[in-house]
Design a protein around this nucleic acid. Sequence first.
DNA 1: GAGATATGAATGAACG
DNA 2: CGTTCATTCATATCTC
Lengths: 224, 224
Amino acid sequence: VRTRWTPKPEQILILESIFNSGMVNPPKEDTVRIRKLLEKFGAVGDANVFYWFQNRRSRSRRRQRQLQASLMADPRAAPGVTQQAGGRVVPHERPTSSSSSSTSSNNSTFPCSSSASSSASSYNFVMDDGSDDLFSMISSQTPFMCSSHLVLIIECVDSGIITVFIDGVPSEVPRGPIDMRAMFGRNVMLVHSSGELLPVNEHGVLVQSLQMGESYFLVSNSTT
Amino acid sequence: VRTRWTPKPEQILILESIFNSGMVNPPKEDTVRIRKLLEKFGAVGDANVFYWFQNRRSRSRRRQRQLQASLMADPRAAPGVTQQAGGRVVPHERPTSSSSSSTSSNNSTFPCSSSASSSASSYNFVMDDGSDDLFSMISSQTPFMCSSHLVLIIECVDSGIITVFIDGVPSEVPRGPIDMRAMFGRNVMLVHSSGELLPVNEHGVLVQSLQMGESYFLVSNSTT
DNA sequence: GAGATATGAATGAACG
DNA sequence: CGTTCATTCATATCTC
């Protein structure tokens, strides 16, 4: 009996982030880079990475078609939502990658509990030397859980963009001051993974740049 | 937490009948037709139908392999019989679709009780207009129980074959006179769902054709 | 209501 | 790339 690869949660997050960042069909050389990155979290081969992206593309497109078809048939059908009673049951875009824009304000609870727990595998991964990889791990801290979602920090070298995963959603922000209101809307603030609230000036702009490799969480302050 | 589709008894019967009639892997357009038919009995989506056939094929094949393997290991094992004591308990082909040829004569009791009961859901389904569907509901009567099995009548248009469900087993018969002995063996007679015995001539051939859309039941007359 | 089973859903791996 | 198969996960159902 052949045993098949079972990607670790961290590996899935990495793959999803790369896919969602637009690289949906990495060329062979990038596939190798991705494989090397994934290997920090478990054994994986180039073929696995290749198949993963192939399946991801295929099923993403299939779901897109089905969604379109169902919208054609019944424009009232709410997109991306599995209807329990009533109409159609259409598998939507993978829940893991719910691209609900970062602007989702309330309803979001961030009881940020540090350190790995539950389903998150625990790894002692080292900092990447950043030799020839497109991606490199920069966080010396282990992945941890936030809102029952795995949070993992990776950085894309050769760019001023920091990629963090907030509640499973990859977010890319530029270095330097950030206009909170423009980027995330009102009544939202950023909290560092340590739990500390980030200060903003009277215009809602962060007084200091986000720190590369750190992770932050959007919380609603509508109740204050 | 997502709740999964739970097919209604009528839907399972329809799916089983299609599968057993040879359409084990319906193309996409037929899947849509099947879904539309199933929708008369409850909310269901194309994906559900797709998954159902995929699982049905897979598990049917697996059971076949397991059966073969167990026969290899122990040729004395009676085929198609679940072993109670001793080795592995191998589930055989689903009872609902037991393709034990229609020649099973005695041991069959058909206390045909009309009208739905027990686990059968009750529906007011309308006749299908038969516009562009491969299958259409032709029975104006509601599904009913026979031998504690749901009985449902569907017809495949564009064919001289009538499909009825007898005790859960889909049966396809041609229009016109039927040689009862050749088809079902001796000491067996057909009873209409109304309870009326169907007349046969001295050669055991039905004097009249089965009526399209009606349902009949095989009963043993070995005691007469 | 805990374990066993049945089965809908998902997905890695492959084929054509 | 679309489609299919094999395997696994998750949950509804059943039984004691």
